[in-house]
Design a protein around this nucleic acid. Structure first.
Lengths: 243, 243
DNA sequence: TCAAAAGTGTTGACTTTACACCCATGA
DNA sequence: TCATGGGTGTAAAGTCAACACTTTTGA
């Protein structure tokens, strides 16, 4: 589309009814963490009367002088104090009626953060971590946005080394397996899991052991530095169809 | 995000520099077809001086009174005369500088259409089908948009029955295989391909034969009606990681 | 000594790949 | 009769799923 066309159309629209630029664009972040063997999402109660305190995702309008991706990084930084976070754009939601007070199109991102990270500092007392499975009703269309991000995370996790962003630097294979299980909502076989992780060659054996566990301590691992990426590059799929 | 916050922030911005609503939102469609054993994309020369006739995707601004998805259906209908087209949202591109004459955030979709469909009628003489592999330089950021859509199509095609939207109603297994090959850019083994397609149970044997082929005619098939979907629903991936 | 989880291999089922011959048709 | 693709099966390799026992630690 050329600007000439944009101007033409915009002008025509202006003359007839609403200003084209009367659409606002926002980003909404599904900020995941992993705590107490549960996948959780950062929410804040909506203060809009239509939604009477229902949990809402964290978002903001995109500023004219910032990239779309930068806007989601900014929301993250403002709300959590964290920089250099794993962030993935998922989908853009643009139904006419999705925002009760005006036309707002929103691009949804999910973020993966380590809840024990030293830089994590929630900037507002109303922010709370909610178990994903407890979130039944949310403000706006935030429930379908969450669901879409969760599906996207599940797919991602199946072939890319991204879950480590939800864990502290050092972790045991049990913690890693439990994390996969809580994302995918399945039980995994321990031996098969370890075999598969081993093959993938993502981890460094730290030659350290868990401490303060009420049972035999497991070895601690960390992700190889070249594997830990902040934002995933898209990659072409491998060949032929899967089921 | 609540409207209260939106209004607050928007007001603050207004007072300081640019109006928040000075961001326009558009859709851009990567319209794929399959012709002469090649995957092609519908383009139009840019009439913007910055891009001096470079091929451009088809897009338009989103109107305040239409859904984001509707905007892409409208672009498709206006440009091709086709309704009920397979369309998939892929990604939203929002760099500050992506449009030389203003701030425009665009959501990219790809469409799959049958170039021999009776309703296909290009509404503008400047529209041309370009071979994907010939498109090296494009206007705006349309080349990365095309690349992203192509990667997304390749992934989709690996497990979902969507390629049929690029073919006429009746087709042979050879045509289907050649289509997969031209999307995935690989050679596939004929026997293995047919086995796999057979297992998937997507096709109906029409008990008809190809005509006008300069060799032994193959059987014709069509997609089972329950398989042919216009827009794919997202689905959760199956379990455990792939390579 | 008990409870809890760590750590570790093998087998059978299934999936994927590689590969070759005869057949039907049109030119 | 020749060229072109249609149509078909098998074997070997690789991947995936199921499954149990011994060890180490803390309480």
């Amino acid at each position: 589309m050329t600007m000439k066309e944009i101007l033409k159309t915009a002008q025509a629209e202006k003359n007839s009814h609403l200003d084209y630029f009367n659409i606002a664009i926002s980003v909404d972040c599904v900020i995941f963490c992993y705590e107490d063997r549960e996948l959780k999402v950062l929410t804040m109660p909506s203060d809009l009367k239509e939604f009477a305190g229902l949990p809402s995702l964290l978002g903001d309008l995109v500023r004219p002088d910032e990239d779309l991706d930068s806007a989601s990084y900014r929301v993250l930084l403002e709300r959590t104090g964290m920089e250099d976070v794993y962030l993935e754009q998922v989908h853009t939601f643009g139904s006419i009626g999705r925002h009760p007070s005006g036309r707002v199109i929103t691009t949804a991102y999910y973020a993966l953060i380590d809840i024990k990270h030293q830089h994590l500092k929630l900037g507002n007392k109303l922010l709370t971590w909610q178990r994903v499975k407890d979130l039944k009703r949310m403000a706006f269309d935030h429930k379908p946005i969450l669901d879409t991000c969760l599906i996207s995370l599940r797919e991602k996790v199946m072939d890319q080394p991204v879950v480590f962003n939800l864990l502290p630097e050092k972790f045991s294979l049990r913690e890693l397996q439990e994390l996969y299980q809580s994302i995918l909502l399945v039980e995994l076989d321990r031996r098969n899991f370890r075999k598969k992780i081993g093959i993938k060659d993502w981890l460094l054996d730290l030659d350290e052991m868990e401490v303060d566990v009420p049972h035999r301590p497991g070895k601690l691992y960390k992700v190889k530095p070249e594997i830990r990426r902040r934002t995933a590059a898209r990659r072409p799929g491998s060949l032929m169809m899967r089921d």
